[in-house]
Design a protein around this nucleic acid. Structure first.
Lengths: 157, 157
DNA sequence: CTCAAATCGGACTAAATCGTTCCGATTGAG
DNA sequence: CTCAATCGGAACGATTTAGTCCGATTTGAG
């Protein structure tokens, strides 16, 4: 129930990148200097975030990186999924082998919980974390998922 | 964003214990046989769950263990917290030292996210996972937390 | 067109945590 | 009082994870 430090750092780095977004492109080294994280770690994060389509990287001299989408449409769930893979509390949801195939009565309920948590994180955009004053929308954006569990309960059963 | 296998097993074991609850007391070995988990692992889980006050253990010959509270009032959040400690996505929420004290602009927002996730898990009682037909309440119990993020947003700021 | 600088991308090493297993302490029954 | 069965805690091994390094690629200037 604790996300890896990489994912934590990824959120911080993306938050810093969102602040630089208006100024154009930034470099991994600049993000490291701004956040205080080790430079190689930020490079690793940038790799994964770019592969996930959250950052757009421009190579070559004078290159850099910038947000692929507006900060308002990037949620914490997107960042976590980019770094840690799909949000799934249990291993049986991914590849999936319980030692207790038929006996496990809770396994069919895990997808519901996973989706509920993902919905919670998906309702938190980058703008809310960065404290960006440009786009005011904390309350309405969150209200989009009022009852994630209710919806999933009906969907899974 | 993935809980440890111990916590996963704990949920399965508690679910099995909830099924045995009506029949009285059970033993750790019986739970292991029923769930297919290794016996020592279940013993370790029982230790932590008892320390957390979720299970009541009776020592000695003929002893055993039973639920300390009715299954309806035990949530997934309780079990996860018993095994993994407090639900906190980031390390800075627990003991807490970021390498970036003042620079980290997202740190004040983590408690909000943590509480939102905890609220989501707290809304799922054991009865819903066990498929217990005795107490019908899946939909209403979940509706108790309609907008956990909204409430926390106002509380933290 | 060639050179050089700066960047991203992937692979390796070390550390910490997690999972498993074993042994001892405690308690109730015979 | 003796015995047996159980929980409780501690140590070992394995896996995943965080951190570091070096190489490949690309673009701007000369």
């Amino acid at each position: 129930m604790r996300l890896s430090n990489l994912a934590d750092y990824a959120v911080v780095a993306m938050c810093a990148a969102a602040r630089h977004c208006g100024g154009g492109r930034t470099s991994a080294a600049a993000l490291a200097a701004e956040t205080g994280l080790p430079v190689p770690t930020v490079q690793k994060l940038v790799s994964k975030l770019s592969a996930a389509g959250l950052l757009r990287s421009t190579r070559g001299s004078g290159g850099g990186l910038q947000l692929a989408r507006p900060a308002a449409s990037i949620s914490v769930a997107d960042i976590v999924e980019a770094v840690e893979g799909p949000i799934a509390l249990t291993a049986c949801a991914d590849g999936g082998e319980c030692n207790v195939d038929a006996l496990c009565s809770v396994r069919p309920h895990w997808p519901m919980i996973n989706e509920a948590l993902r919905g919670t994180l998906a309702g938190i955009p980058l703008t809310q974390l960065a404290g960006q004053p440009a786009t005011p929308k904390p309350p309405p954006a969150i209200a989009a998922q009022p009852d994630p569990i209710r919806a999933l309960t009906r969907a899974s059963q």
